[in-house]
Design a binder for these strands. Structure first.
Lengths: 237, 237, 237, 237
DNA sequence: AATGAATGAGCCTTCATTCAT
DNA sequence: GATGAATGAAGGCTCATTCAT
């Protein structure tokens, strides 16, 4: 075999999703890793714009000024490259500030913090790391074999974080079905501000939201949601 | 024969989306359903499961026990068949009871009615016309050239209906940006109960919601939303 | 079988080209022969515009407001319909005035007559019976199995007519190779004024010839050709 | 490899026709001609025999012992392959000796030179580059999107060359309509000796012209044409 | 006397992948 | 260490024709 020197690049099948995340060390800047990096950069952009199925290997090679076979050579196959991109997205999402709050913060503060950091990132096409969110969005619309992995790493922790805050706020425990419903209500509202292809296609006159509008939307969601949670807490199940 | 009265299958151009809706009379489901009918039935199922792009003409022909060219003969092309399916979906959605309320009902009643009729239809895979909702969902994820038509016929009327109710409830007019945000919050919550391919793929152990759970979710959304709206009405813009 | 009552409509194979030309009697205007006539009219137009291969059975049916199978029913197959059209064209060409001259006319008169009747018919897109010429042109560019028939009925008689005139003019007999070459030179010049698809496509700014220009071209060809013939007659073989 | 220096087969859009002509060096006909070369060879033969529309990608792949997708890989699409063939034809036509004459030659010499080099090339099926002429012929009968390019590179320069000679001979300028008509007369006579599918199909007994006959025909055209031109010069417009 | 429906072969193109150096 | 070349499967679509009333 004639593989590049990356540690254990045997491209695993669809069975195990988790990668070791490339470990940071950009492999001794050996110069000829440039193609691999360009491919990753291009893949990050294209996959986040069009999703896994919307991108062809030709698109990737062309835009990365790489050979058509380069994807296969460096990543085993198209899914292998996608897996690397998703891994970076997960890493990014995982350390994001959305659920990173001071230990002593109140549930209300946690929810406000979540919404006001999350919604602007979702809504703004210019924000940093939107690409990761776009990847997630594509996965939700049209899941790949990587979906379970993503669910486990991204979705569940957030749900738990929100569930804990909501449960505390309602004075109940996380098993209470009302908690789950509130979490769903909150999360659904946030996601609805994500840029949306249907909107672009179906409403040609659509105007991008301004930053002020995005902030207003976030505040709205927080107020709206907290009011809803309190109301449900009062009336019992 | 069970064809509608169009004498020759002359398939209109891309200009106008709107069909006259197959003329009603589904002509006595005679058991030996004509190829055209079988194709429509299969297309309804497959398109709602996998979306326009996820279905090939060969899939359709095979499952309908029809010749590969039958789609072209009866519907002009793949999009023509899809257009018929979408037309049925729109017809179905259009006459649905969701926005069909007594004239003297209060805004709150209207919202409760909307949610309690809409959510069960979205959530239950056994309900009638889920397929229509699935088509809509696919259109939102991966719009086809039919998206503008769908937006016009389905989305806008609902938004107007909800916006009117919300504005009345808040004592403001429909131009108030808070109204739009509340409508989005409500609609997002409803849609989050729609069956979801990501959920199926990512959470293999997912259990279908019972009817009771679905009803509980609908009630939750109504309570939650009304509480949110009232709260926002109090605090002003 | 369920054939229309036309005399012996057994559509022969590619072997024998010659038809009996429908004989005039439009078969007792039985009313339901209308489709057949419409088909013939449409076929005359379309085949002359686009040639045999450039027209589909669908085109014919559609424009004649006839069923897709009508062509097959009435004419056996596409070539059968084409054969009828060609038969009419041959009939038309055969009785045309090009070679129909007074018995006592001089060779020079005959040639002038040929050119001045032939060229305007070829050149003008509005002239009567251009369609027959267009059919011929298409046959020359892209022959069908009917080509030998056409050659026999149309090309050879004209060649003989011209050869006789040229031979007389040169004071030689028709076996003289110079005669054949002069005939070719004359015919080639005439044909070069026929409307030409390449010209339309390749020279978008092309302007149609006026009637005066067409007449001038015809006169030119006659003068040019007669001068050439006389010159060759002088110098011997 | 024997590919030209284009590193990746990125196939240009429909905008520009002109190619840089394969860079010349046909790379030592190494016997094991690469697929690309075999495809080009087969395409040259088939396109010149049957024209662009008369050849299918399957024909090309089969006869070149190549995969069905090879045409797409090497040339983008069928038209891309055809474009290369036409480019070679144009290059060939462009450097041909037809219009390449000594500067001090007389108009009569130029016309004789044109005819006596052009006609044998057109007439003889054994001559070099007849295929190029056949391509041109097909383009005239059934133009492709490449027609304007061909007109510009091939037709116009020749017309100009002939027009100049004729105008000088007639003692008039190139704007004189008689000049154009003489050029058409000349060119039409030349082209009439090109091998012709109709002739093959319609006259199965057709006998190939001998070289002597071809030479005689060329001489005939020159004499005939010069006589015609002189006659027209005398009689004025 | 005619037609709506269906058919099978074929069209060009695109795709992710693998091979042979 | 990497890539130009090739591949087979599949994509949507069009065609002339034939079948079953």
């Amino acid at each position: 075999m004639s593989r590049p020197s990356r540690s254990a690049p045997e491209h695993r099948g669809a069975g195990s999703h988790v990668r070791n995340g490339r470990g940071g060390a950009r492999s001794a800047a050996s110069g000829d890793a440039a193609t691999r990096e360009r491919l990753l950069a291009v893949a990050t952009r294209l996959f986040s714009e069009r999703g896994f199925r919307g991108v062809t290997v030709r698109d990737l090679s062309r835009e990365a000024n790489a050979n058509l076979a380069a994807v296969n050579y460096h990543f085993g196959d198209k899914l292998g490259l996608y897996r690397e991109v998703v891994a970076m997205a997960l890493e990014d999402v995982h350390v994001d500030p959305t659920t990173d709050v001071a230990a002593e913060s109140t549930p209300e503060e946690r929810i406000r913090h979540y919404v006001t950091t999350y919604v602007p990132r979702l809504a703004s096409p210019r924000g940093r790391a939107v690409w990761a969110q776009k990847i997630m969005r594509h996965e939700m619309n049209d899941p790949t074999p990587l979906a379970p992995w993503i669910a486990e790493v991204v979705i569940l922790p957030r749900m738990r974080f929100l569930a804990e805050a909501v449960a505390t706020l309602m004075g109940t425990d996380m098993g209470d079905p009302r908690v789950g419903r509130c979490v769903v209500s909150l999360q659904a509202q946030c996601l609805s501000y994500m840029p949306n292809r249907f909107r672009e296609v179906a409403f040609p006159g659509w105007r991008e939201m301004t930053d002020a509008e995005i902030r207003a939307a976030a505040t709205h969601i927080a107020d709206f949601t907290l009011a809803g949670i309190r109301r449900l807490a009062e009336q019992g199940e």
